[in-house]
Design a protein around this nucleic acid. Sequence first.
DNA 1: ATACCTAGAGCAAACGTTTACAATAGATAT
DNA 2: ATATCTATTGTAAACGTTTGCTCTAGGTAT
Lengths: 335, 335
Amino acid sequence: MSITIKDIARETGFSVATVSRVLSDKTGFFSPQTAIIVREAAANLGYKKNMAATELVTQKSNVIAVIVNSTKTNFSDQIINGIQKRADEAEKRVIILYAGDRNERAQKIALSTALERPILGILLLSVDLFPSNLDILTSSQIPFYFLSISFKNNELNYISSDDQEIGYQATRYLLEQGHKNIGIAGLDITNSAHTGVLRFKGYQQALNESGITFKQHWLQTGDYSYESGISALRNYCLNKDVTAVIAASDLVGIGILNECSHLKINVPAELSIITIDGTNLCKLVRPQLSSVTQDFYRMGYLGTTYLINSAQNNAYTSIVINQRQSVQKISSTDY
Amino acid sequence: MSITIKDIARETGFSVATVSRVLSDKTGFFSPQTAIIVREAAANLGYKKNMAATELVTQKSNVIAVIVNSTKTNFSDQIINGIQKRADEAEKRVIILYAGDRNERAQKIALSTALERPILGILLLSVDLFPSNLDILTSSQIPFYFLSISFKNNELNYISSDDQEIGYQATRYLLEQGHKNIGIAGLDITNSAHTGVLRFKGYQQALNESGITFKQHWLQTGDYSYESGISALRNYCLNKDVTAVIAASDLVGIGILNECSHLKINVPAELSIITIDGTNLCKLVRPQLSSVTQDFYRMGYLGTTYLINSAQNNAYTSIVINQRQSVQKISSTDY
DNA sequence: ATACCTAGAGCAAACGTTTACAATAGATAT
DNA sequence: ATATCTATTGTAAACGTTTGCTCTAGGTAT
């Protein structure tokens, strides 16, 4: 049984009300000396506030629940740092819940864990909620925002990159380097969150603008994984026409890169690679991967800001192209 | 204002006590029909239990708080998976709290966030607590275990690898491959948790057993980071005698590897590398890094088991050597 | 002297649950 | 018919806070 406000009241001779007011800094409701006495007693007794009780009576909370996929998305750290920073500035606390790997049950557990206690709101980190779980969430009245995922309709709040713009910019960049046969690999174009279809759309748009006709095998779908990269590269080898490829994630990029090394294909001399995400992984491999880099930190920061201010808007965070070592210019005469 | 047990009581005509009993499955205290009626009403109204209230009265909780460093330790995912698995089996919930990057204040905030509500216990993931914060924790009466960190004395509970054994095994392995001049890089030998000094001790032990005299420059201290690896390699180049090096972490190993590539040193032909940890990163780079691999998943699983059963013991998890591509045998004639 | 204000403090209700205890009704045993 | 048991339900206290309201004593304005 731990120390409560009552113990302090008994110890100091004041009422619980007074003690409570001192300890929660309701300035103007107690004299300075009282405050000193109470605070000292609290410190001596090793008092620790019971938030469950506080939240029960105030009906509000200062904790933000962040739900993440356990699938190593390797950029979630950056988002979480942004969240943490903003939360800290606003004196909010954050707890993180794992929602498993696209697992309906695990998602539900994470959701319940969050929903079953008073919380400020929920941030979903690139978790693609099952419909049943989305229902639970929407009917809960708790504000929530999706991060790093966007939606077709604007019923759901999200903060992410503009995925179509990502596809477009990546393609433009490669075109500017003289590439004409450009692959796009590792992305999912059936996903309900439609990240993949948007990126593909941007890619096609850029191709069209340059008068290039898309060839079906240039698109190698996948699930943003390392393995997707490997199998994509193998398929490209069948036609041997692409000179550059857009990887749907850093892991896909590394998969492609490593399979190239395996097959003795020189990057970037024989194949240029640009990846989407731009996490630290790009700088860990050799050659370093050029990337269209997303501002994950800002996604977290902004999402948290919106949540705190209960702003009901969506937003895109900026993207930028980082030139490293995996893309090479080719002159048209090379063809 | 959300739906409470009272609303269900009013709706169904039963007392709150009965409703509570049905909803928390106190079998034997209600009739089957009552149960049906109550459950249906709960579902219809969209009832969601308020855990803050429950925890307040029962004085216990089914949530485990996990405190992690925000410093990308890239193996914490594995530990968390182990925790999550075990917690799930025992119907416990887990929340994760970020403790910043060796930041006293951030640690304290994370700790308070955990301590200020009813929780089952705390798991600390390779977080080296500041003394002041350790005080807070110990005086809280809440059970806690350190994961992936060990201590000299056995006052504190921990589950980790046997770091001395890691150092010993890594060195033995290299010796068996014919190496005699073996460096050890990127580890911290001042750290209070003394992971580094133990690994170094194991290393020296193996050296001694083989009758090799340790040279001071073979030890390149650091902070387990990528940068530590880079600067270690540069220092080794000053003497040009080491033929193999033990990297204190996968990131250190990659730092060494990349600096080798920068300086045109061939791995493993000219320099062998074995890293400690053995996370996925080892398989992402070329050549793939051989490693002494820790069983992080099991650390999490076991730690959680101990916490749940309030077993007051320490434990070491097993290690294993994974041969990949970064270590080469050298014949003694090479010298 | 009277009326009014203010600072500081206490009283008690409320938040949403759980649970010991009491109550009731029917069933069983004698 | 009486005593005893059992299954089901209700009553009310308790958990640790916060906060509207009340109270008192001293101060200020008239």
